[in-house]
């Protein structure tokens, strides 16, 4: 079983400072960590490998510092790690990101399963997984909470939608995106951690991929969406408004507030 895990390095979200006045974000005090959902994706892959044999390859697209994250992935059980890093990949939206990742997966050759996190904590779109599946022309299941069965031909998963759980059988190769409920990522052993510190990471640049893809779909140029500006929602402190009146008046005012905030239709 050849399993590919897609992993993204993200800023430590609790430490990013949001300047509510200037509408800017300051990442300087935030370290870089693995997108938490991607640890669940990796754990799922390693568990399948432990059961069914095979190998796990972690792939990330990002700046060179993502090597650190990929080393951590090796310590946690990945067999191989590839970083797609090039200035010309930068500024990618989800479409260009997915295209680049799908190109790398194709270049790798045969695979059975691709596993992604449900979403990232920074871009937060949850789009890359399904888009990669489309570029690869394989079926996918999003929000997978449980892997029930897997063999060389198919995988059975439980995917959680708002109202119902779907039990889906996907023929392989396929892609799944996983939620935090699927497993508890294991901690690496110190020994594996130290060993991984010295492990080589394969790096693919634009030139490595441009032979097998259409370059105009990479990076900023290949991205149809544009972030025009970012601003911070006006929260900061709480409003602290008192609602007063008779119980009936108060009830009416609460309903009005819920309406204003579209909690109620």
């Amino acid at each position: 079983m050849n399993i590919i895990v897609l992993m993204k390095q993200v800023p430590e979200i609790e430490k990013v400072r949001f300047d509510y006045e200037k509408g800017r974000l300051d990442r300087s005090s935030a370290g870089a960590v693995t997108n938490p959902f991607d640890l669940n994706a990796l754990e799922a892959a390693v568990q399948i490998k432990e059961r069914a044999g095979g190998s796990v390859t972690a792939i990330s697209m990002g700046p060179m510092q993502a090597i650190e994250m990929l080393r951590d992935a090796l310590a946690r059980g990945a067999d191989k790690a590839i970083l797609l890093s090039d200035e010309r990949f930068a500024g990618a939206d989800t479409l260009a990101t997915a295209y680049t990742l799908a190109t790398a997966i194709k270049k790798l050759g045969a695979f059975d399963l691709v596993i992604c996190g449900e979403k990232t904590v920074d871009g937060d779109t949850a789009q890359v997984g399904p888009e990669v599946a489309e570029f690869l022309g394989i079926p996918h299941a999003a929000y997978v909470e449980e892997i029930r069965e897997i063999n060389a031909k198919w995988i059975v998963v439980k995917a959680r939608m708002e109202q119902s759980d779907y039990i889906l059988k996907l023929s392989l190769p396929a892609l799944i995106t996983v939620t935090k409920d699927i497993n508890v990522p294991r901690l690496p052993t110190l020994r594996d951690k130290l060993k991984a510190m010295r492990a080589p990471i394969t790096i693919w640049t634009y030139d490595d991929l441009s032979q097998v893809a259409d370059q105009k779909y990479f990076g900023f140029e290949g991205s149809p969406t544009r972030v025009i500006k970012v601003f911070t929602p006006v929260t900061g402190g709480r409003r602290g408004q008192m609602i007063s009146g008779s119980p009936e008046e108060i009830a009416a005012k609460i309903v009005h507030i819920l309406r204003e905030n579209k909690i109620l239709g």
């Binding site: 960590v33 938490p36 990522p185 901690l187 052993t189 110190l190």
Partner: peptide, 20 residues
Amino acid sequence: SKICESNNAIDIMIAEAPEE
């Protein structure tokens, strides 16, 4: 880890991510 291993530690697991 040397000290722990000499005292029969089964394993030594490491958590690095702040969240963990």
